Amino acid sequence: MNQTASPALRPGTKLAYLIIAVATGLLMPIQSRVNGALGVQLDDPFAAALVSFVVGLVALTLIHLVFPGPRRAAQSIPRVIAQRRFPWWYLGAGAVGAFVVVSQSTAVPIVGVALFTVSLVTGQTMGSMVVDRFGFGPAGPRKISALRLIGALLTLVGVLWAVSPRIITDVELGSLLFPMIFTLIVGVLMGYQSASNGVQAQAYGNPLTATLMNFVVGTLMLGLILLVRLPLVSTDGAFPTGWWYYIGGLLGCVFIGVSAFMVRHLGVLFTGLCMICGQLLGSLLLDVVVPTAGSQIGFATVAGTVLTLLAVGLASVSGGGSAKTRRR
């Protein structure tokens, strides 16, 4: 697998990419709220995840049919796979996306948004650092400098601080251990997902096509799981009539597509840190504009979010360029 370094970004371009990545991260808490509500209505998190993926797959298919660029890139998929432009297991990124949606519908009702966010973000940071260091992404291995490592650690501190009021009020943490570990593992795999999508986007020549493959794989996997589970689960749920219940898949398209584009230019770790900032800002905005029964906005929430933003700024100016060694 050939991996080449991306050209150095000018400060203005890097700032623009940073803003786009943070803005894209804003979509994650909205998607979590939508998919969680859909899961409650359908009374099955896997069914909700499948609906979300089918909506996204339909939208991406229409885009590839209508626009020449994505259509040409989609036509190259069989050739790219046959030529082994990337390891076959990179296609598993779609399965990770499916489990992200499932975790939104299953873990949040059990552990709450606070602990879910801590577990997911911790996993994201760990996974992004590993795949960046070992070069699973399209830019190859990237150095993890001391300042960049400090920035990643401060991100975790900021997230913990932001959600600390809710963590303190949660008792019997032992009973929450399994869903937290599940969410942590999903978060770690999100680093691999971002790297795999970036490599696929480079191979196909279009990040939308990498996103399409994500939704194809994720939809097939969720469909099989649902068929196996169908005789064992209740079918009392009903499809809601509100249009907003069905936008989770569209938000996922944007999130995955932008991530696939950004990791080539910013690296997996820095892209992940920017999107984590967006997740925190989005959660704050949702709790202020559309609060739920468990919403808590206080000094720790705001201060933790600010600390995370500063940590991303530190990671941005600390280098983290590509390692000299390249795979040929």
Rank of each mutant, 00 (worst) to 15 (best):
T235Y: 11
S52P: 10
S32K: 02
S295D: 08
Q124L: 10
V118S: 03
G174P: 08
F261V: 03
H64I: 06
M190T: 14
V163R: 00
T183G: 09
G319F: 06
A74C: 09
G94M: 03
A114R: 00
L154D: 04
L153T: 13
S194C: 08
V108E: 01
A315R: 00
V288Y: 14
D287Q: 13
L309P: 07
D132A: 12
A59K: 04
G140P: 08
I20A: 12
L18N: 05
W88A: 12
L189H: 05
L26V: 11
F178V: 14
G249C: 10
L220K: 07
V171R: 15
P207Y: 02
S6Q: 09
A238Q: 14
R72K: 15
L208V: 11
V101I: 15
Y192E: 04
V302S: 13
G304P: 09
S105Y: 05
V131A: 06
V130A: 08
I297K: 13
S318A: 15
F178R: 14
W161E: 10
G137W: 00
K324L: 12
L212D: 00
G257P: 02
M213G: 03
S6V: 09
A203G: 10
A315S: 15
A260L: 05
V113W: 00
F99S: 06
G36H: 03
R229F: 11
S196E: 05
R229E: 15
R264D: 04
V199F: 04
Q200V: 06
V34S: 04
G36D: 03
Q202V: 10
G272Q: 01
M275A: 11
T305I: 10
Y204T: 05
T61P: 08
R166W: 00
M275K: 06
V102W: 01
W244M: 12
I19R: 13
G320C: 09
D236S: 13
G248Y: 01
A74Q: 06
S164I: 13
L189D: 02
A238I: 11
G56E: 00
I144N: 02
A152F: 00
T325V: 14
L177V: 15
Q104V: 07
V258C: 05
A48I: 09
T209A: 06
W89Y: 15
V163T: 09
V100L: 13
A98N: 08
F136Q: 04
V40W: 04
V130H: 03
F116T: 03
S32Y: 02
P291I: 05
I144M: 15
V290W: 14
Y204I: 04
L284H: 07
L208R: 06
M28N: 07
I167A: 10
A73W: 00
R327E: 12
R229T: 13
P179H: 08
A293I: 09
L222I: 12
G151D: 01
D43G: 12
S103R: 04
